[in-house]
């Protein structure tokens, strides 16, 4: 049993909240009322936007069919997950096709891009696409996540700047929140197997959950928040590992006689984080093993952060009452 010093009430509250959230979620899934919810989500049924009509905002089609008559306009963007779309009118934004059957007639006009990631697309040669036509799921990638080609100078700056920024964050964290940071560092250093295992499980499951949430479109902001939160957890974990690494570094320097006193906690964290980040960046050069080590480091840090609940509780690796170890 993970032993925490506080009462079990928060865990109970978490369970209750999760239950309510799931009940709402399941209830939402069970809703089979045909029609549009909020004017932008088509769940089922047959719909038509007649000539001269304009539908404001984004539109998400998860089932059913929609006919956009010639002369009708959708403000866009339109996300097509399943069902049928017969476009004879105009979409002022992007058309994103992830599934279902989409037909663009001769009078159809898409002012933005046509991103075709899945489903069937029948395009009349007379249909107008003002933007680009992107085939494959590359068209659905989130803005800012594309691979960016960097010049050697930019690469060098990144190599130096990213570790430096994180090390600085580590310095301030160690200076102003030394307790939580040292609790996370202690969990990572003293229980690496437990923290690593827990972190790995989180790394396997949570990204899949976030992707799943993103596909609902409605919960996309939550998914992005989760992604940011994930980055924060990983960065915090690295700083905590850096904290311990810096401490060992300081002790090593002292033993070698290069320093009289150990490094102060903020400076130890700064130096340790900087060293760790450089090491992690260098791991990219080693194929497979480098990646595996990188993942393990991420898992170790993230696991320690989550087990200590961001350092606010000490992780005590004492499970439920166990018999003594075997007499040897």
């Amino acid at each position: 049993m993970i032993a925490f010093q506080k009462s079990p009430r928060p865990f109970r509250r978490l369970c209750l909240s999760l239950s309510l959230l799931l009940i709402l979620f399941v209830a939402g899934c069970a809703a089979d009322q045909p029609g549009r919810l909020g004017g932008t989500l088509i769940l089922e049924g047959e719909h038509t936007i007649a000539a001269g009509e304009r539908l404001p905002g984004a539109l998400l089609i998860t089932e059913g069919s929609l006919l956009v008559a010639p002369g009708a306009t959708l403000a866009g963007p339109l996300y097509m997950l399943s069902g049928d779309l017969d476009l004879q009118g105009e979409i002022a934004g992007d058309l994103n096709v992830l599934g279902g059957q989409v037909s663009l007639g001769p009078s159809a006009r898409v002012a933005g891009d046509l991103n075709h990631g899945g489903g069937e697309l029948a395009l009349d040669p007379a249909a107008t696409i003002t933007g680009e036509v992107v085939e494959g799921t590359g068209g659905m990638s989130l803005p800012g996540l594309e691979e960016v080609e960097r010049s050697p100078l930019e690469e060098a700056i990144r190599f130096l700047l990213e570790p430096l920024l994180l090390a600085l964050a580590g310095y301030f964290l160690a200076r102003f929140l030394p307790g939580p940071l040292s609790r996370v560092a202690a969990a990572a250093a003293e229980q690496p197997v437990v923290a690593g295992a827990f972190g790995l499980l989180v790394l396997i499951v949570i990204p899949a959950l976030l992707i799943m949430i993103a596909f609902t479109m409605i919960l996309l902001p939550l998914s992005l928040l989760g992604l940011l939160f994930g980055f924060f957890v990983v960065a915090y974990g690295w700083i905590a590992i850096g904290n311990r690494l810096g401490r060992w570094l300081g002790q090593g320097l002292q033993r070698l006689g290069w320093r009289e006193r150990p490094l102060s906690r903020p400076w130890a964290t700064f130096a340790g984080t900087l060293l760790l980040m450089f090491l992690l960046q260098m791991l990219e050069w080693i194929p497979i093993a480098g990646f595996a080590l990188f993942v393990l480091t991420v898992a170790l840090g993230a696991g320690a952060v989550l087990l200590t609940r961001f350092g606010w509780r000490r992780y005590v690796p004492q499970p439920v009452a166990l018999p003594p170890a075997d007499e040897l």
Partner: peptide
């Protein structure tokens, strides 16, 4: 999953060795 959450909510948690 919901049943488990409910069970956890309703059942008092036993103390860990650390807490004891």
């Amino acid at each position: 999953f919901l049943g488990l959450l409910l069970l956890i909510y309703l059942q008092p948690r036993s103390e860990t060795a650390y807490e004891v």
